[in-house]
Design a binder for these strands. Structure first.
Lengths: 152, 152
DNA sequence: CGATTTATTGCAACCAAGTTGCATATACGG
DNA sequence: CCGTATATGCAACTTGGTTGCAATAAATCG
């Protein structure tokens, strides 16, 4: 397997792994197989992913569930990943810089079916004025719950 | 104690309890001391309350923690109480009709100190348009996290 | 490349939050 | 005030997540 990585014509997959690897190193974390797998999975996911999702997705990789917990919190701490509770009492994680999970954005969760959607940054506006703490207008994280189109 | 309740000049506290009692009965729940205590505490609280808060507040009432769990879920089920996870992975409950907790309203949580504030209904507007599911505009629950004035 | 250092992993044990089963107690309709 | 359905208390259990520690493997350096 080392041989493959060292080939002279890197496949797209190889360069992607290399990119992840250097993002990890740049954040001061070692590039271990477990972390590469986690980060890579989060990048390819179109919505925030729970620890349970991850355990299931990487089931046959042999990575321990404790390692996954630790990876998620490490990655969150260095800012490569964001963690949020979308109102259903489940921690979910999303890459801080994939196409789907790039910038911070509001999330919508259906209270009926649990479906999760990422909204655009512009879709929610917070008024300012009396009664509204200045602070609220500098929101870091917004989440909305309701019935999705299908369930309503 | 029954004698006191039957007095001819009900104190404000007595009529308040009577009101809670009939709200419970109207919802098909029996008016037990535990439920009256829980509901009464939630009504007087100015912010959403966690199960742990409740256990502490009613510590010397002798009410079992399991009963408190069950009371909270029962009250939530009949709609006298609303339950939400404000993003910190803790279930919090608020009366569905106290002065503080009346109508559904957005919540703000400080990511630093954990302070929670109730916002006015009007303070958050959700845009409609492409990319935004129609559903999101019919939000049931909105929560915002960021730094409060004091922590920023 | 091989040795050294230090971060990371796996495993088992642990902890807290929340739930369930069941016997006892109690609210409330008659 | 009685009978019955509902609620409570207690103990046991489940689930999600954390911690301690010995073994392993990245990165660094010669």
């Amino acid at each position: 397997m080392i041989a493959a990585v060292k080939g002279r014509h890197p496949t797209p997959a190889q360069s992607k792994v290399a990119a992840l690897r250097s993002r990890l190193r740049a954040s001061g974390l070692r590039a271990t197989p477990a972390r590469l797998a986690v980060l890579s999975f989060l990048e390819s996911a179109s919505r925030p992913v729970s620890h349970a999702d991850l355990v299931e997705a990487l089931a046959d990789s042999g990575i321990d569930r404790v390692t996954l917990y630790r990876n998620l919190t490490d990655l969150t701490q260095v800012g490569l990943v964001r963690r949020a509770d979308l109102g259903d009492h489940v921690w979910r994680f999303e890459s801080a810089q994939s196409k789907s999970g790039h910038a911070e954005h509001p999330h919508f969760t259906c209270v009926e079916c649990g479906e999760i959607a990422c909204l655009s940054e512009a879709s929610v506006r917070i008024a300012q004025g009396k009664g509204i703490p200045r602070s609220a207008t500098r929101a870091l994280e917004i989440q909305i719950r309701g019935l999705c189109d299908r369930c309503s």
